[in-house]
Design a protein around this nucleic acid. Structure first.
Lengths: 263, 263
DNA sequence: AAACAACATTGATATATATCAAATGACGTA
DNA sequence: TACGTCATTTGATATATATCAATGTTGTTT
């Protein structure tokens, strides 16, 4: 296995040493990525692997792929071949009706897996769009299945990822079916910072990667309502908002709005 | 493997012959169910198994379990051990908030699998409630995983089931986030008859197993709105409704309401 | 620096659905 | 059969959010 030493996302090059210790530089689309060296490993890959297994696990990932802001990683109707682990960047997934209405079904960040929708029919049924320049690990699903049969811990991991997505969607259904605008936005903000915090970012400050319209689409409300609700929270001193920048001043107040009982 | 010859759900007994051809009767909770003989096999188990594999596949199912109307198959917080394949009966799954609001996340019928929500945390995060007396195959998830590693076709089947659930929830999110009451109810009715038809029932007539309130909870509307929308469809000559009985007179009109573009 | 495009905010008004309320119907049980 | 309970229907009114419209902000292009 090659040792990955540095990546330069701007020049799209990767530097590494081979077995004979000589230097190479190549395009990331053509290199093999080593999960064993990846600092996101504990987010997208199972723990409890020994060093030898870890080498085998690297075989899951075929290549990396760079997706520029606004580009689709995959689209509705595309043939399904791979799952994608996000290394850097931020995505939205969305479905749309014949008459052009769009529903954002999720926002995904580093360490999260997208593409699961394609397994059932071998075709993707949603779109994955980069909301900022992104870099993903391409994991051909055939590899995932082959190695899952060999490594129970990987098999279990894949099952958990799919189950987690089902449970997440259950709670979005609860948001959409039962909650009012303020509750939806509070839940959304709390969920985002919680995930960002798990990745080493601030617990109280964040920069939104999506527009008010995309937030609204996800939460089943119009962009004006999203904006008004932000303003309401701001007037109440719960958050500080400046366009995409949000500072959560009173996390407990947000939690109370989302879930009045447990606070 | 014992040969299952008849079941009497009322007396909770099962009759079968053993290897020496002598008759036995026993409680279904204690017997081993044979997928190889089950007429729902093509709904909940993979196709393309040879006879030998089929025998092994029977090992997935440990027992059967009977659930009376109104009873929970599992509840939020229960330890997760098994998936359940519905043999007979009808279920709803639902999540609820601390303050008692309930969101129905799905309705499940014969041949469908429930319990996937429990995989990620080893605890169930929703409730599965029988809307009529039901009979399920208990499939300990450890068995499913063990046999999945051995049989790629079963592994693929499990992945497809989970992916299908993700895709289904995506389209429910579209319903809840973007559709109006009439569109939601039209989509709901079309989906129900389509699934019933796949099970040999009528394409145009159905008996609802759930209340107006449960339909409303699933579709994010109040029971009064569900009732009014039924009445509206009825006045328009699209359906005939008498309490739980629904006769779809103009399926194309329903499809047009749901999706004006493709009709 | 000016002009432009995309996004966000805010106000006025409309509307779909919720809420409240009453009557009716279905069903199990005493 | 009568009673009580639960589900459903229907009407009148309230309300949260959508819609329409104007203005402000930010960042980019010329």
């Amino acid at each position: 296995m090659l040792e990955l030493l540095s990546t330069n996302l701007d020049t799209k090059t990767v530097s590494f040493k081979d077995e004979s210790n000589s230097w190479h530089t190549m395009n990331p689309a053509t290199i093999k990525v080593a999960c064993s060296n990846c600092n996101l490993r504990e987010l997208c890959m199972p723990v409890g692997f020994n060093a030898d297994d870890m080498q085998r696990l690297d075989d899951v990932v075929a290549t990396r792929r760079r997706v520029r802001q606004g580009e689709h990683l995959f689209s509705n109707g595309d043939h399904f071949t791979s799952l994608y682990a996000i290394r850097t960047g931020f995505f939205k997934t969305c479905v749309s009706t014949e008459d052009g209405r769009e529903q954002v079904t999720g926002f995904q960040m580093a360490g999260e897996i997208i593409g699961l929708d394609g397994i059932v029919t071998d075709f993707h049924s949603c779109n994955a769009v980069a909301l900022e320049d992104a870099d993903v690990c391409v994991m051909p699903f055939a590899n995932v299945e082959d190695l899952s049969r060999e490594f129970p811990v990987l098999q279990r991991h894949v099952h958990k990822i799919m189950s987690r997505e089902i449970v997440r969607e259950n709670s979005v259904m609860m948001l959409l079916g039962n909650m009012r605008a303020e509750e939806r936005l509070a839940a959304f903000l709390l969920n985002l910072v919680q995930r960002l915090h798990a990745r080493g970012f601030s617990q109280s400050e964040l920069v939104l990667r999506m527009t008010r319209e995309e937030i609204g689409s996800y939460l089943g409300m119009k962009l004006e309502t999203v904006s008004r609700t932000f303003s309401k929270f701001s007037e109440d001193g719960i958050i500080e908002v400046k366009q995409r920048y949000v500072h959560i001043l009173k996390p407990d107040a947000l939690k109370k709005i989302f879930n009045p009982q447990t606070c």
